[in-house]
Design a protein around this nucleic acid. Structure first.
Lengths: 176, 176
DNA sequence: GGGACCATGTAAATAGTTACATGATTAA
DNA sequence: TTAATCATGTAACTATTTACATGGTCCC
């Protein structure tokens, strides 16, 4: 899959000028249910975008710290817009816990129960966080943000529910 | 993320001796909602596993065709079992359509509506296929297969529902 | 003063896709 | 006979993670 890093960065910079660190945090906090980027992708890509003129450094915002605040340029906006008109590529999803669930009859059931508990708990935390975020918003505001929050809520609910059913099944089996 | 290809292959071979082509097909058909592998990963990994003695070639099953049927060895079973006891790594999920949804206010709304329709239709097909598969099974059989089918059903339902809600929102906005 | 967090960066390794090549078999 | 599917493979490219280094700032 062609890398989408530049589009995530341009998209976020089109909404707000910010640092690489901010961008990473934003992705971790809001896009967690459907996207992720590492610093090893973000910082080199920012440099590349800068060299290509699609973003620029906001010198006014440079404070005493080492931070570099980037903002999008006209040409960056064009790049972003063109990408939006291209059909999204097929998604990529990899959940190791599902593989372990499927092959669990080959090993010790206790392990899979532990992993499912952990997975459930972790996504339950995400679910509650996303719900709280959504509840804190005005319903008529930021339609697109609500769309992705709803996605995260739906997906995390599905994860949690599936875990509960699976735990019920596996625990029943172990206690026999 | 350390590559999991070998464990998927060993896991599937622990259930049934088969060719690289069969393995790929099995992953595409049954694991689609949570995993994928390409031939470029499968064939080299099979050769590596063979060299390491974790799988072997089933000569009896070699027919007139060029196909190579692999089966798991004792040492391969040990590798599989050890992996099952290691905590699953954090999942990796990338859905470009969610990015495009989030940034859609920046471009033309018609595009995002088209992509959402396509995404919805594609996952509705998956949903129906998984449901039909599950319905064709005896409920007491293959507990682990039912677990992953249920996962696929839940996730695809969530996708489809989210698309419907999002399409409603975006169409409402466009028609204003 | 120390821990949490802000902030940037890169090299090396690993992972993964894609495009291409080749040819057999099966069923319409 | 022709299209679909079975079947294997690899080289080149691209993507991504990870581990490491460095140091500032904020608050207790």
């Amino acid at each position: 899959m062609r890398t989408k890093t530049r589009y995530v960065l341009l998209g976020l910079l089109s909404q707000k000028s910010q640092t690489g660190y901010d961008l990473k945090k934003h992705i971790d906090e809001n896009f967690k249910a459907f996207w992720n980027e590492s610093y090893g992708q973000i910082y080199p890509e920012l440099k590349k975008l800068l060299k290509e003129g699609h973003i620029k450094v906001d010198d006014k915002q440079k404070d005493s710290r080492r931070n570099t605040v980037y903002s999008i340029t006209k040409s960056g906006q064009k790049v972003l817009q063109s990408w939006l008109e291209i059909e999204p590529e097929k998604e990529s999803v990899r959940l190791e816990i599902l593989l372990k669930t499927y092959f669990s009859n080959f090993g010790n059931k206790e392990f899979i129960i532990d992993y499912l508990e952990g997975f459930k708990e972790s996504h339950d935390v995400d679910l509650r966080r996303l719900k709280a975020f959504k509840d804190s918003m005005h319903p008529s505001d930021q339609r697109e943000l609500i769309r992705i929050l709803d996605f995260g809520i739906k997906i995390n609910k599905a994860y949690v529910q599936w875990c509960e059913e699976s735990l019920y099944e596996f625990k029943k089996e172990v206690s026999l």
